[in-house]
Design a binder for these strands. Sequence first.
DNA 1: GTATCCACTTAGAATGCGTCAC
DNA 2: GTGACGCATTCTAAGTGGATAC
Length: 755
Amino acid sequence: MSGDHSHNDSQIDSGSRHNDSHKHKDKYKDKEHKHKDHKKDKEREKSKYSNSEHRDSSDKKHRDKERLKLKDGSSDKQKDKHKEKKKEERSFDDKPKKEKENGFESPFIKSEPENNFYHSLKHEKSLKRERDDDDAEFKPKKIKTENDRSEKKAKKRKQEEEDIKPKKKIKNKKGEVATDGKKKGKKEPEEKWKWWEEERYTDGVKWKFLEHKGPVFAPPYDPLPSNVKFYYDGKHMKLSSTAEEVATFFAKMLDHEYTTKEVFRKNFYKDWRKEMTSEEKSKITDLNKCDFSEMSEYFKAQSEARKAMTKEDKQKIKEENERILQEYGFCIMDNHKERIANFRIEPPGLFRGRGDHPKMGMLKRRIRPEDIIVNCSKDSKHPKPPPGTKWKEVRHDNKVTWLVSWTENIQGSIKYIMLNPSSRIKGEKDWQKYETARRLKKCVERIRAQYRDDWKSKEMRIRQRAVALYFIDKLALRAGNEKEEGETADTVGCCSLRVEHLTLHQEMDGQEYVVEFDFLGKDSIRYYNKVPVEKRVFKNLQLFMEDKEPEDDLFDRLNTSILNKHLQELMDGLTAKVFRTYNASITLQQQLNEITNSEDNVPAKILSYNRANRAVAILCNHQRAPPKTFEKSMQNLQTKIDAKKEQLADAKRELKSAKADAKVRRDEKSKKAVESKKKAVQRIEEQLMKLEVQATDREENKQIALGTSKLNYLDPRISIAWCKKFGIPIEKIYNKTQREKFAWAIDMAEKDFQF
DNA sequence: GTATCCACTTAGAATGCGTCAC
DNA sequence: GTGACGCATTCTAAGTGGATAC
């Protein structure tokens, strides 16, 4: 079906974030009444359905016949389900490490007590790694015996003991050996931990030992120098420190479009007033009379000064950052030093919601130690709160992966500090995600047959479910959870589509049954697409939209929970999201198989790869604002190409005259000259081609973001196998960070891997 | 059945920083 | 040595989906 994915240029060309589009501004601005009578509407739709069923009588004739045809699908389903449930049994042993030093200043990794807080896995019978029976490729390279493993572990432990002796030698993540925090130039090859060759935890246990140093807090507020003034109504006004701090948040954003938006200004002003003294409150009554320009200039000057710092000063800052990274940027999880993704607490500032977010401009308050919940092993060295403060809580929950959490004040949601994508805990999950998508590959045809059959169901809820699933599969739409009104921007996914988001065209541009989608998805990115659909889908949509107001739900009998419950019955672990992963990966695989030309040189092959990647990004609607410097950089590139062309013409002329010369002279020297000129021409031709390929690639990428799909949707094994097969260095496809994230795939994917 | 909470992944923008041309 | 540029990294918002309470 992926070949059937209906995306077209219009999907990207018209795409933009909501706030850039006037059309959308008008269309979506006034939604306050939107879901008020939501439940009432659902009831209305229910009663309506019994009346509307007969209207679809033209379809009904074929219904029974076709159902008979499709009947076999259910037995397949049972078979597949059975298969999927088979698991391979493997034993597990992971003894805790005895007291050891680590790379932190705190020198101990303590042993875990015998009467473990964490249930001892050692004696547990046959704990399993969930995997498909017939997925031979995904088995770890070697299934280790108890002896193998303990031997290897002992070796590893010895190695780690060496690695983590503090102050003497600190091994950083690059494998560079540093002494007393200072880097040495030479890299030592680091023995990479192949967690993918080891067992996974089961029963929701995420780790057995976790030690870290806690978060790094935002620096305290540094008051403005006295010469930087704030003016109200043209007059200088000295602000209290608290009010001044909040004012600086606004001043720092003065050049940003945000500060021109009414909602942003209103929210900021409201929250700012809460931080003012009563005197300030009575004086400052109109944001329009506030003059933040001196503050703004001051911050710009500071930024310039930072850029203009001496090399030495810059180096000092870099070293300090490195020191903080070494101290706070790593944790010890189950005997391994793992990189933490975001160990810094988000600093206070003004909330930057995307799209038309009703809360943009609100004050994101400063997070204090008293807001922080720390998660670590009971028997680890617990992180210390800053002097004179205490944590909100220290807990020891090994069923979660986070190290630190706090509740933010804008939406009341919880924020977490977690591990880097290169960590075992994230990598395993990632691998598993692609395995689930590959399992879907095996049964997707059966599922498709079923939802096609369900388009004819007598029950409205089943028809809606089937049409929604068709969209999720065909168009890679997101599931579309319900959202709390007034809390977030008005965006939708498949299940939350409203009537106003679709226009049905019986005939359009010479095609029948065209559905025009126009809505704002995640991050208020516009989804615009005109898709020819099957007649039955079209008829169903007409039915779903009948007698509804534009702001009514298209699928009033469906939500993500119902849909996912259904999907779970079709395949173990199947959710709406899996379709996106599956369709993205299978599209990449098919595109690469189709468009790679083994005769091409490396740049041309990479262009093919990027084109395949681009097809996926378009499918998933991954857009970006064209870079501000886009036009200029294209111009520069064109200038380079022109110069190269001239250079080539010159080189060719020189070659010609060298040839003529050689013909006359007939000596070795002139022959050699011809050869060297020939080589020069070749070299320049290659350079020119490289530049031209680069220009094409850049132009095609103008509004498309490739990174998101590369990082989150494309099974890395596809790309790695492709690299191996066509002799492309992996570095050309994945940068260092990406290679670290996909280390598991780089290690296990052979050139014949197919998704 | 529905709302809410929680944990986690996915997302584009902002910022940082290394490289290259001059 | 410097500044422009573009890629890499960081930041944090905005999703998904499971668990739980009512």
